[in-house]
Computed example of a mutant assay.
Amino acid sequence: MMKLSSFSSFAVSLFYEIMNIWNTTSDFILLGLFHHTEAHLFLFSMVLTIAFGSLMGNALMILLIHQDVRLHTPMYFLLSQLSLMDMMLISTIVPKMAADYLSGKKSISPAGCGLQIFFFITLEGSECFLLASMSYDRYVAVCHPLRYPVLMSWQLCLRMTVGSWSLGAADGLMQAAATLSFPFCGAHEINHFFCEAPTLVRLACADTFVFEYVMYICCVLMLLVPFSLILISYSLILAAVLQMHSREARKKAFATCSSHLSVVGLFYGAAIFIYMRPKSYRSANHDKIVSVFYTIFTPLLNPIIYSMRNSEVKGALRKCMGQCAALHHK
């Protein structure tokens, strides 16, 4: 009881401290990604189209997994969580960016900035651990198929999912609170299209060495540790696949695992580029371009990769389309 009480008091005091910081800090200005030119208007339209397609694609994946009984397995449950994270990520970034560009009002309150950092870090961190969980699922399915119901039980699947969300949320809360605890000077202009911790820290008037060092350690834990587990899992999978005698089994295993590795490579490559580069090599324009890639483009690629390379998902889609056609005729 004492531990619970002390934790509750710490959470309450942290909440009031964050609210006090937000109330005493003036609004930030997001410089955005596009200018009001014909070329940038075209690019803006493309980004909106891609974001909308990503939302529809991930929503369709969740619907198919929920509706088709054949997809009620731990693997597809984890995939539905990945689609949910991608939908939330786009909803956190794109609406504000679009509203700022169309209205010309580029200000964002400290509370809004803190919420963007919290949700962004939460979703990115959760996806790191979720991809590691998915790699373990594939390792068990390929290397120990007969023991799959035991080694990858629903109970373990739910624990890994809850753990992924919890670790991501803890990191998001700490980074949002720590980033906005600094005093900011100048015009409060953020050379980005959303509030991202590394970009916001550059505006701080105080020494941020300790925070950047801690953030680097967090990045090692949130990025490199899951990434190492993923590499180990797929190394073991590759060794097992090469020993398979059935050509069809090898082909199916390679197809499934290559799609997973494509998602992992795109996601981790961009995240490591943003968060683990030395400060002297950072460029605001490069950061914005890479951020567009893994906040808008990658969520679109996930459902495409998993649907085009997966016969079970394509079968569920054909079944769903057949049911919709039957209802239309009726």
Rank of each mutant, 00 (worst) to 15 (best):
M1D: 10
S6Q: 13
F7N: 13
F10S: 07
I18R: 06
T24N: 14
T25M: 14
F28S: 00
I29M: 06
L31E: 06
L33W: 13
H35E: 11
H40L: 02
F44A: 01
L48T: 03
L48M: 10
I50A: 09
A51P: 05
M56C: 13
G57I: 07
N58W: 09
N58T: 12
L64C: 04
D68V: 12
H72T: 09
T73R: 03
L79N: 03
L82W: 05
M87G: 02
M88D: 05
I90S: 02
G112H: 04
F120I: 04
E127V: 02
F129K: 01
S135I: 07
L146T: 02
L146E: 10
L146M: 13
Q155D: 05
Q155N: 15
C157T: 14
L158E: 14
V162D: 14
S164H: 05
S166C: 09
L167Q: 13
A169I: 12
G172Y: 00
A178L: 08
T179L: 04
F182L: 07
G186H: 08
A187Y: 11
N191Y: 12
A206P: 15
T208S: 06
T208V: 11
F209C: 09
E212Q: 06
L223H: 00
I232Q: 08
Y234P: 04
A240C: 10
A240V: 10
V241A: 06
L242W: 14
R247A: 15
E248L: 09
A249W: 14
A249C: 15
F254D: 06
T256V: 11
Y268F: 12
Y275C: 01
P278T: 05
Y281H: 05
R282T: 05
R282A: 04
S283F: 09
S283I: 04
N285I: 12
D287H: 03
I289S: 07
Y294A: 09
I296A: 01
T298V: 05
L300S: 00
L301Q: 15
L301Y: 10
L301W: 15
P303L: 02
L317V: 02
M321D: 07
C324Q: 13
A326G: 11
K330Q: 12
